[in-house]
Design a binder for these strands. Structure first.
Lengths: 190, 190
DNA sequence: GGACGGCTGGATAGATCATTCTAGCGCCTC
DNA sequence: GAGGCGCTAGAATGATCTATCCAGCCGTCC
C-alpha cells in the first residue's frame, strides 16, 4: 500500500499537466501512465476530468508552495533564500530537460477563459502563494504597503522565467529572473 | 477583398489561441468563427494545424511587438514608456474581460514539451522581443551587461502579470508588475 | 469562347475524446 | 462461511478531432 490507486492517478495527472496541459492530457493517457484501471478514475473522481483537474491543481499548488517556502526558510536570510529559490528552479529545469517547471502555470492560462471552476482553483493557488511570500517579506521588515505587490512581482518573475526558459531550453531567463528578484528585494529591505 | 480568407483564418486562429490555447482550439471551431470553408484551411496551410499554428505564432509575435514598442517609443522617455506599456496591458485586460493577454504565452507553455517546431517558434518570438527591449534599454544608457537580463526580466513581469491577472480576474497583478518594472529600470538607469 | 487553376464547399474516414455501464474480484465484517 | 461493498477491469457509446478527397465555382488567360 505504498501508493494507492487514487494517489497514483493524482501524481501522474500532475506530471502530465506540467508537460501537456489540461486539454492536452487525456484520461486514457493518465490511466496508462499511472498503471491504473480506467474505471477507477470515475470511481475516485465522480466529477470526471474536471474534478480530477481541480484536485490536482490544489494538490500541486500545495506541494510546490511547501517546496519553495522550504528552500526560502532554510536560508540564513530572506535575500539569499530568494536567490536559492530561483537558482534551484533553474537547476531543476536543466536536470529535467526543461520539463519540471511550475505545476499549474500551463493549466492556469489554458482554463482562464474557458472553465470557471478550474480558473478559480488556479486563482486560489496563486493567492495562497502570494500570501506565503508576503508573510516572509513582512517578517523581514518590509512595510505592509510594499510587501504584497513585491510578493506578486516575485511570483511573476518566477512564472515568466519558467515560460521563457522552457521555450528557449536555457536557464538564462531564470538566472535573469533571479537577479531581478534579488534587486527588488534588496531595494525594499529596510 | 477587405480581408482574404487566409487572413481571416489567421486572425481568428490567433484570437482563439489566446482564449483556448493550441490543443484547445479545433479546426472546425476556427473555420466556423472565421466564416471560412473547411477545405481552405488545407489549401492555404498544407501542413495542417501545425503549419497554421506556426504562422499564427510568428504573426502574433510580430504584431504584439509592434504594439508594445509603439507604446514605449511614443512616451517622452523610457521609464514612462515602460509604465505606459504595463498600464495599457492592464487596461486592455479589463476592457476585454480578462481575455486579451499575451497572444503566445498559453501556446508557449502548452507546446514547450510536446511539439518541437512550435516550441522553437515561440522561442524565436520571445528572443525577438528581448532584442527589441534590449535595444531601447541600451539606447537609454543602460550598460550592455545589465541591459539584456533586464529586458528579460521586464518581459517576465509582463507575462507573469498576464497569468496572475487572468487567473484572478483582477488588474492588481499587472499593476504590481508595472511598479516592479519601473523600479528595476529606474535602478539601472545611469 | 473554351480551358485552366486557384479556391471553395462539404462529405468522409479513422482516430481519439470523455463518459457511462455492467460484471466481477477480493477483503472485511458479521 | 456468507453477505456486502470498495474497487477494478474493460466494453460500448456518441461526440469531436485532424486529415484526405473530390466535385464544382469563377476569374483569368490563351
Amino acid at each position: 500500500m505504498a501508493s494507492t490507486t487514487r494517489q497514483r492517478i493524482l501524481d501522474t495527472t500532475a506530471a502530465l499537466f506540467v508537460r501537456h496541459g489540461y486539454t492536452g492530457t487525456g484520461l486514457k493517457q493518465i490511466v496508462a501512465a499511472a498503471n491504473a484501471p480506467f474505471g477507477s478514475v470515475y470511481h475516485h473522481f465522480p466529477g470526471g476530468k474536471a474534478q480530477l483537474g481541480e484536485e490536482v491543481i490544489h494538490r500541486s499548488g500545495r506541494m510546490y508552495a511547501e517546496l519553495v517556502t522550504g528552500v526560502i526558510d532554510a536560508a540564513p536570510d530572506l535575500l539569499t533564500g530568494i536567490e536559492h529559490a530561483f537558482a534551484g528552479a533553474a537547476a531543476v529545469m536543466e536536470a529535467t530537460d526543461y520539463i519540471d517547471a511550475c505545476p499549474i502555470a500551463t493549466v492556469a492560462l489554458e482554463v482562464a477563459s474557458s472553465n470557471e471552476a478550474l480558473r478559480r482553483a488556479t486563482a486560489e493557488v496563486f493567492e495562497s502563494w502570494i500570501r506565503l511570500i508576503h508573510q516572509r517579506l513582512a517578517g523581514a521588515g518590509i512595510d505592509a504597503g510594499q510587501a504584497r505587490p513585491l510578493a506578486i512581482a516575485l511570483i511573476q518573475l518566477l512564472e515568466g522565467g519558467f515560460m521563457l526558459s522552457r521555450a528557449a531550453r536555457s536557464t538564462e531567463a531564470l538566472t535573469a529572473a533571479g537577479r531581478a528578484a534579488a534587486t527588488l528585494v534588496a531595494a525594499a529591505l529596510p
